[in-house]
Design a protein around this nucleic acid. Structure first.
Length: 276
DNA sequence: ACAGGATCCTGGGGGC
DNA sequence: TGCCCCCAGGATCCTG
């Protein structure tokens, strides 16, 4: 569910609330997440301070004192929010980190596609990102690298945007919105894009993500930021979830197809299948 | 090696 | 109201 702008918003919201705080205790629910929470992690985390809250792709990283890190992925329905310890945890709350002063960081996830993992040192965390071949941040996307990656695959451009090893952080919403912004048909073969088209897409991705971050991301179903506030970018969608609605540019009804196993929205007139 | 599909979950919405 | 089917901001494993 949450893509880069939502994850960035969660991190920005949480930063002032938990950086510098000491984790006094950890409570673990019965049901497992995508990754199993090891019984030994609680003791390793207890007593450490949260030094840094940061984002890498769609991953949330808390660096703790002593070179170790706590890493979350929100999957489709994950939430990471701070609550008073007095407040009864919402259903599907799987992890609770007491950060003293009567507050706790809670990880809530209805579908349990999310994950929470402890890394004993920075090297172990780095190895994990390397093993999964996590790609560069969209805002660091180099033009030449981008062209080369597009040229080297037989997949359609929509599938490539969703590939976290090519670029980290883009998901279904922002892939569709970026392709509309770049006026490219999502089913175009990535290797068929002209250099100018590839670059238009690279710039569009950054622009769309930046605007979405400014609006605190998109709240369609479950998503809320780290402060519990919703995003506003769903009001700016030009194609995502707008099948049948008139295109904001030409009034042609927005089409919806299935690509790379995901629902894909585009304007058949503004986003032509051929390169001309 | 690569691309596409199935799979892991729960809940909401639409159709009947 | 109830039931059944489809759908969902994702990542990973399996297969052809």
């Amino acid at each position: 569910m949450p893509e880069l702008p939502e994850v960035e918003t969660v991190v920005r919201d949480l930063r002032p609330k938990i950086v510098g705080r000491r984790i006094a205790s950890v409570r673990v629910g019965k049901k497992s997440l995508r990754t199993k929470w090891s019984a030994s992690w609680g003791a390793k985390i207890r007593g450490r301070r949260i030094e840094v809250a940061r984002r890498r792709g769609k991953w949330i990283v808390f660096d703790l004192t002593g070179d170790c890190s706590l890493v979350f992925h929100l999957g489709m329905t994950g939430r990471l929010t701070v609550h008073s310890t007095n407040e009864i945890p919402a259903p599907h709350t799987h992890l609770r980190f007491n950060v003293e002063r009567g507050e706790e960081l809670r990880f809530n996830d209805i579908r349990r596609f999310g994950s929470a993992t402890f890394y004993a040192n920075a090297k172990a965390l780095e190895n994990s990102f390397e093993r999964s071949r996590l790609g560069p941040e969209p805002f660091d996307l180099d033009a030449e690298y981008w062209r080369e990656r597009l040229a080297a695959t037989n997949r359609c451009i929509k599938a490539v945007l969703l590939d976290q090893t090519v670029v980290a952080g883009v998901g279904n919403i922002y892939a569709d919105e970026s392709l509309f912004e770049a006026e490219l048909h999502p089913a175009r073969l990535a290797s068929d894009l002209a250099d100018l088209e590839a670059d238009r897409l690279r710039v569009a991705v950054k622009s769309v993500l930046r605007q979405a971050i400014e609006q605190r991301g998109s709240s369609i179903r479950n998503y809320v930021g780290g402060s519990g506030l919703k995003g506003r970018y769903q009001d700016e969608f030009r194609v995502y979830g707008r099948a049948g609605d008139p295109c904001p540019c030409c009034r042609t009804p927005i089409a919806r197809i299935r690509l790379a196993g995901r629902s894909t929205h585009y304007c058949p007139k503004c986003q032509r299948s051929s390169s001309k």
